[in-house]
Simulated scan of single mutants.
Amino acid sequence: MDSPSGSARDRDFENMTDLERLQALVRIETPSLDSGAAARVVAVLAGWWRSVGAEVRIVDSASGPHLVAELSGTGDPVLLVGHCDTVWPHGTLTGDVPWVVDGDTVRGPGVYDMKSGLVVMLSAAERLRGRDHRAVRVVVVCDEEVGSPASRQLIDECTRGVSAVIGFESPHPDGALKVGRRGSTRLRLVVTGKASHAALDPGGGISAIDELVDQLGAVRELVADPALPGEVLCNVGTIGGGSAANVVPAHAEAEIGLRFVDPETERLVLEGLRALRPIRPGAALGVETLSHRPSWSPSASDTRWLGEIAAAAATIGQSLDGRPAAGAGDTNLIGSLGIATVDGFGPAGGGAHAVTEHASLRSLRSRIDLLELLLRSP
């Protein structure tokens, strides 16, 4: 059945239920790199954070506005990390992924990845009002789904002086937290050749497509090298070039996605890719980095932080553990620095980036309970 109407967005934060808060955020469709959409949802979030007593700063960027909130308290702040953009285009709510509540399950674009996580942060912070608690810093960026091109520096600034970090992406399917993430790099391999008539002057041209095919073969050999210390996932996601069958192509390119378990493998592969050279005389080859998130291997500080969270969970009847994740996110940028970090503090659910996207309301409330307890602890 459907939940209450979208007018919940216009009500005071204190008078809204957690479900209404989530609905209000989901009703504002926020595809990445739409600065107007980001401004609308950040304005709502800014008002809500101010209502729970935080000092709020909105940071403009080429991708749109980001939000930083500071909630004064005891000790060095705990940094809460989230994003407000989704993979879904405008019109999804009235198309493939409508807002629906059916018992414990809520569906909608971005409900799982990761607007429910934003509600966890806010609802826990609301419960802290008038009580002793840890200092809290919040950063919500608007370009995570496209690699955080305009928010990396802000995220780095927000890590300064923090005691620990919690990311609010979705958890593992069993609800476990994410401690460690594969590094993720997107590259564009660009080849420039020379056009000529494929029949009248085949030798006068330089086929950019033939050169690209051979270069992709070299990439496959590089990432499959058994001497590498760790596994590499490599996906050629797009490929294009040429204009007609009777023209030797002068241009070709491919977009490549790479995932790394450890920093040394990442370094060796990326250095190898940058060292690629054209095979055909006269061809030109370029390697352009589109986005890069370093690999985050779990550290001793991450393990201690996870243990503190698990111990707190046990006191309220929750069982919780953590392990590395295959996907990358903004916590890669933080965990790779050695700062005590966990991710996946959003509620359980499934279907991220798919029309089956959904979240559990019961899990949402459990995460709020746990975060409140963590932030109340001295």
Results as ranks from 00 to 15, higher is better:
E221N: 07
A340M: 05
D18N: 13
S377F: 07
P324M: 02
V41K: 14
A37V: 08
G147W: 06
V248H: 05
Q23H: 14
A38W: 08
T159K: 11
H133T: 00
K178T: 05
R127M: 04
A313L: 11
L45F: 06
G175A: 08
V101H: 08
E126C: 08
G237V: 00
L276P: 00
S291V: 08
N235M: 01
G204E: 08
C142W: 13
R21D: 10
D85C: 06
L122Y: 05
T238N: 04
I28L: 15
R107K: 08
V119L: 02
R365T: 12
V223A: 00
G73D: 01
R323T: 03
L200Y: 14
P98Q: 01
G329M: 05
P263W: 10
V287S: 03
D2Q: 11
G241Y: 04
P249W: 06
A46Y: 15
T265I: 02
G346R: 07
V138A: 04
L273P: 09
S319F: 14
V26Y: 00
A24Y: 12
S319N: 11
A164P: 09
P149W: 07
H251V: 06
W305H: 09
A176K: 11
G47P: 09
L118A: 03
E157Y: 14
H172N: 07
P281Q: 02
S116Y: 07
G307L: 05
D34E: 04
G322L: 08
V140T: 04
N246M: 09
P298Y: 02
T303Q: 15
S336H: 04
M114Y: 02
F168P: 06
R127E: 03
N15S: 15
D225F: 10
D60F: 14
P149T: 02
R9T: 05
A340W: 06
Q318Y: 15
A124L: 03
R107G: 02
G204I: 10
G272S: 01
V162I: 13
L67W: 15
T94Y: 13
V81L: 15
L187V: 08
R186L: 10
E357K: 08
T265S: 06
V162L: 09
I256Q: 00
D96Y: 05
G230M: 02
L200Q: 12
V269G: 02
L33P: 01
L370W: 10
D96F: 07
G317I: 07
S360V: 11
A252P: 10
V59C: 15
Y112F: 15
H353E: 05
V179T: 11
L370F: 10
P378K: 10
C158K: 10
G193I: 11
R274C: 09
G322H: 03
L333V: 07
A359F: 14
G335W: 13
A54D: 04
R129S: 03
R280M: 12
G103F: 12
V248N: 00
E357W: 15
K178Y: 12
C142Y: 14
D102W: 05
E264Y: 06
S148R: 04
G75A: 03
G203W: 15
P294I: 00
A198E: 05
S63M: 06
L33C: 03
G344F: 12
V213F: 13
I316S: 00
L118Q: 00
P31I: 01
S3V: 13
C84E: 01
H90K: 12
R188P: 09
A199S: 14
A325F: 14
D330L: 07
T185V: 15
G344D: 02
V165L: 14
A164I: 06
P263A: 00
G286F: 14
P31Y: 03
